[in-house]
Amino acid sequence: MHPELQKLVLLQDIEANIREAEEQGEELKELGFNLDGLNQLKERAEAMAGEINPRHLAYYRRLTRRFGHAVVPVIDNLCTGCFANIPAQFVSATNENLLQKCESCGRILYWP
């Protein structure tokens, strides 16, 4: 996997867990979970963002604002963001030094 993609995936995962702690926090606390480390988690997200090429990060942010999720998994050769078909030759190129984008919606593609 492209190292930059790995960082973007982790950033998106951490941000999803931050959002969940914020939106479902009361529910999680009722179950007994302690969410005191929220600021620490935000710092981690910031540190991770700091390691990403600013151009890639800006693109990630733009997609996140537009779609909610910037990086989407490709499942059964489909972009799970817009359900466009991802050609097979795309799949074989996943390890190359490029971030792969869906040609139809522009989301960053990830092969889980």
């Binding site: 982790l10 995962d13 979970f33």
Partner: peptide, 13 residues
């Protein structure tokens, strides 16, 4: 990816 996510989650509490 899974490990890093679970480790980050533990940082929350």
């Amino acid at each position: 990816a899974v490990l890093q996510m679970l480790e980050s989650r533990e940082a929350l509490g």
